[in-house]
Amino acid sequence: MTSGLIFACAGVVLFAMGTAGVVLLDHLLRRILAFNLMGSGAFLVLIGLAQRDGMPDPVPQAMVLTGIVVAVAATALALALARRLFALTGGYGLPQSEAKDGND
């Protein structure tokens, strides 16, 4: 197993943990952090797999930079919304009044 493949496998594990966190956790801050974990996992796969003959490939590095910018923007938006929700409701969970399956 090459080092690149180890990074990629670690990336997939991180991604799976992050996805589970975003879907299953209740606390908004934890979900936002989990989303960042998910993104980091995908970036690790991108960097880890893309090594041709031991030489790093510059294209995925550019992609990861772009991806980081997107992730930062999404995190900022999520934090702003979560703060506003906290100011209105005083809690860091999503109100359950509108049930997920629509049977409200």
């Binding site: 998910m38 993104g39 796969v45 991108l46 992609m63 938006l77 919304l81 979560a82 506003r84 209105l88």
Partner: peptide
């Protein structure tokens, strides 16, 4: 705000899955 956050998490998971797919394809 709650609807927006729920939508945000759904759309982020969706595009996260898409990004992981792109990473594997590029690999």
């Amino acid at each position: 705000l709650a609807a927006a956050l729920r939508y945000l998490f759904a759309t982020l998971v969706g595009s996260g899955l898409y990004l992981l797919g792109v990473a594997l394809i590029y690999g």
